[in-house]
Amino acid sequence: MISFLFYVFSALALASAVMVVTRKNPVSSALFLVMTFFCLAGIYVLMDAFFLAVVQVAVYAGAIMVLFLFVIMMLNLSPDELPAFMNRRIKWAAAALAIVLTGSLLFLDLSRRLPASPAGELKGEVGALGDLIFGKFLLPFELTAVLLLMAIVAAVIMARREI
């Protein structure tokens, strides 16, 4: 049953990921990206990582993509008004990058160099994750906070030239 659901979610995620890059309408692309995030959350649930799944939905689908959609709707560009960066050269570069990435992941997986899944260690327990974040990985966690603060300051400066 679980492996069946895994294939369902994976197929849906891949299909909607393809739709994200092939749709002409940016709003449809954004909605298919939400669908992809949702399927990934489903796969996390199958791995017993409930916390990760819920955070995936709450942060990516519920907050970040809403902001994306907000901006897309605000600009409301029609397909022929879209900037010319969607030219052939960019498409080829993106395709090459995707192939390299898939190839290296396949290589790592086939040569068994990927680290073991931490899902067994965590068992979906929020407490276990909290112990890891605030214990073993405290420094990287705090550094992320500083990085986010820097991003906020930069965004404010870019939005208003004089403060």
Binding site: V54, V55, V57, A58, A61, G62, G124, V126
Partner: peptide, 12 residues
């Protein structure tokens, strides 16, 4: 086990 987070995730 993450009941309240589930509500926030779906409500969002």
């Amino acid at each position: 086990s993450i009941g309240i987070l589930f509500i926030f995730a779906i409500a969002s």
